[in-house]
Write a protein that binds this DNA or RNA. Structure first.
Lengths: 351, 351
DNA sequence: CTGAAAGCGCTTACAG
DNA sequence: CTGAAAGCGCTTACAG
């Protein structure tokens, strides 16, 4: 391995001068600089990242902390991870993936001095990991928000997203709109913030509409989606449209609805919020989705953290971006009441 | 930040002895050890990972090198990434995600001394990144294989997987089985090895069956899947079953087939090989899949690399695991020829 | 504009 | 069983 000392010897300068050239930290005479650059070139020298980190007490490594994704990876999350990694690299940082589930383990990792900053995913309304992060004094940015809106975060604007979804359905004439959310194993106050925020936006919208809200909570799986379809059909038969905040249950909801002998969007219009365009295309009929701004948010999260590390920033960043409506074939006008009745009669006739 | 020196002072020993206790590298008298452990506890000391790395010239960081996944993440890949990260952590290593596309950039990263070893994904039959890796002298393991089977690798056993898929279809009576693969922008010799290997296994199987092979190559998207459906219908109308080696096109193939007025599995049986169970459940009808052993392989890849780093191993690991058949509803018996004819007549009648 | 030297916080032969 | 000391390869005041 070529060291800075060897470069210095070949260029007849001190290692300090070599360091100044490499980092651009000090003015160096043109001829000297040229000699050094030549030596670097000839020896194919690369600076040792670890030594630099120790000497400068900055590692240029960022940690991406996330709960265990091994079981049910979802497309939105991976888009986020990848774009954050890209964003970091472009600014000269590397992103380490740290799957941590318990706080204890997290504190150990942060205390090791390996990372300059951390990005936290799947933030809960009350999140003990955030307390650990603050205690560790490692700079961080959240993907999502806790109760405390003052911490640096980037997040999906769920209020605007749900409002747009409701507006889209209303423009087709829907009044009876249900919300399907995702069940988590966490206590209510430890739920991901997105569920709470989306639900409250939905409740507001229904209040404005003067209709009773219908919220169904199921697992984020195909089976969960089917369960939601049955629940809606049996317990809330007047429902004409559904907004999903449950990526994993989207396909199951459509399948389940059709298994009940109903059609999408004939009997039930469906919008899946905070997911990917690709998911919409995979399903039959193509799902109308609100595409999550995961690629943008990943980059912005990396930028927000790095700005903080480099002191480029004044106030803690609070970035909100809504999802984008991508129309598919799963939204249509609701049946008129008499039409529904006629259809029911036909069904009763055995056809 | 608490340093080892402070621990040593508090315990009245040298920093060397503290180091021995922390790393278990040398025998230390019980009382001395107890004093040191107490001091560590009281001061809440954590060893500085960067200093350790510089002194020991080992960073315990592993790089996961992958091409740009930002655009089209797929479920199998993310399962792999996550399980590799977990496997590494359990053995005291951290996995860094490095999205690199050009070789030049990769060489720079490897030369920095930040990583002890590398895992390379999406390996091509001839892969210049592998040459770079060898030149950099950084230990590595491949996910996939090049032409050269002697390098350390873990991979899906595509031969066994395709054989099992063909066998499954034959047990239903299928003889006219097509293969749908994925188009890449790479030159043929730079294609991912999986395509070549799956294709050759398929060709062997068809030769054994005494049937002409039909291979259709499309993009790994919904649109690609539709294109495959049309191509099969127009150019190879005798086809009764398809094996997909194209995760992203699976849903589109089924949708496209139904748009042509055909049914799955009535007119066409479908198996999607090397994907996830979840994908199968999302589609209607549920797809019969060959589930990729991504979680196992991720762990095994991490283990193989770490064994190498720690000298635990004799020969370079060559690990092959086949996919697992997960029956869905997309495979059935082919229509008998006369049945097909009758149906065609019915269709011609306008019904 | 350039250099000598201290220091980052550890590990690891080497001595005793 | 324990310690003094060199060294890992850089960065960074401090002098000149």
């Amino acid at each position: 391995m070529v060291t800075m000392r060897e470069v210095a010897e070949r260029a007849n300068v001190s290692i300090a001068t070599v360091s100044f050239v490499i980092n651009g930290t000090k003015r160096v005479a043109p001829q000297t600089r040229a000699r050094i650059e030549a030596a670097i070139e000839e020896l194919d020298y690369r600076r040792n990242v670890v030594a630099r980190a120790l000497a400068s007490s900055r590692t240029r490594i960022l940690a991406l902390l996330h709960p265990d994704l091994e079981i049910r990876p979802n497309a939105t999350v991976i888009q986020f991870v990848m774009s954050a990694a890209h964003g970091a690299r472009e600014r000269g940082y590397d992103l380490v993936l740290w799957p941590v589930n318990d706080d204890e383990q997290m504190s150990h990792l942060l205390a090791g001095g390996l990372v300059d900053g951390a990005l936290l995913m799947e933030v809960q309304i009350r999140d003990s990991r955030v307390d650990r992060l603050i205690a560790s004094r490692v700079p961080f940015a959240l993907i999502g928000r806790t109760e405390d809106d003052d911490l640096p975060f980037v997040d999906i604007d769920f209020t605007a997203t749900i409002d747009e979804a409701v507006g889209h359905l209303r423009s087709y004439g829907h009044q009876h709109i249900a919300l399907v959310t995702q069940r988590t194993k966490a206590a209510p106050e430890n739920e991901p913030g997105r569920i709470m925020r989306a639900e409250s936006a939905y409740l507001h919208a229904m209040a404005a509409l003067g209709r009773p809200p219908v919220v169904v909570t199921v697992e984020g799986t195909s089976a969960g989606g089917r369960e939601a379809a049955r629940t809606l059909h049996e317990r809330f038969p007047g429902t004409t449209a559904v907004i999903l905040l449950n990526e994993g249950a989207s396909a199951g909801l459509v399948k389940g609805t059709r298994e009940l002998g109903l059609t999408v969007p004939g009997d039930l219009s469906v919008i899946s919020a905070s997911t990917t365009r690709e998911l919409g295309e995979m399903i039959e009929p193509s799902l109308t989705v609100m595409a999550a701004p995961a690629p943008e948010l990943g980059r912005l999260a990396a930028d927000a953290l790095i700005d903080q590390l480099e002191g480029v920033q004044d106030a803690p960043p609070h970035i909100l971006i809504p999802c984008t409506l991508v129309p598919g074939e799963s939204v249509g006008s609701p049946r008129l009441p008499d039409e529904t009745a006629k259809r029911a009669t036909r069904n009763a006739d055995g056809r």
